[in-house]
Amino acid sequence: MYDIYAIITGPLAWLSFAVFLGGSLYRFISLYQLARKKDGAVFQYMNLAYALRSIAHWLTPFGARNMRLNPVMTVVTFSFHIALFIAPLFVFAHVVLLEESFGIHWITLSDRVADILSMVVVFSCIFFFARRIMRPEVKYLTTWVDIVILIIVAAPFATGVWVFHQWAGFPTMTLVHILSGELMLAIIPFTKLFHMFLFPFTRGYIGSEFGGVRMAKDW
């Protein structure tokens, strides 16, 4: 057990960070080079002010008409994404690990808040899953990859809650927790999860087109 623990918190952890960072960097550079070669116009029309205008509207809850048309989805999506970032970065147990390994630390969430945020992520994933199989327009688009990604994203949070509450078999769950977290990080560059990095560019570009050329709103 301790051997496995040592492997997944040692080499595997480094590997997952390396794949995440290296993979993301690789995707960025290759997309940038391709864009430079084939999509010169994109750089011509990109406009920082209009890009930020569009991004700001779409990062504001209910800032776009479509968000108002789908209020439940809007609330769930926003809470999901916020919780997804805040919980792992500021949960006490993670910051302690950082402190022990590298001597750095930052503010932490109270255990209770972290627990709630993790559950928000898990329940959001259940909501997304239900939406995927119940809404015909989403079901039509859904592939098994979408479901697997949902499971991979939910796993570290579900197991995190488990471990925190020390439910039955929590030592094994700790391993699953770490492993699934590493897996999630590692697949980001190669799956649709990469949307986290592409969002500012796709949104920014359409915002620039609408603002600068089309002189219209895009929200």
């Binding site: 391709l34 864009a35 999509d39 994109v42 688009l141 592939t143 649709k192 560019f201």
Partner: peptide, 12 residues
């Protein structure tokens, strides 16, 4: 890249 990003980014 534009087409690639449009197709890859869609989370369906």
């Amino acid at each position: 890249a534009k087409l690639k990003v449009y197709v890859d980014t869609c989370v369906s």
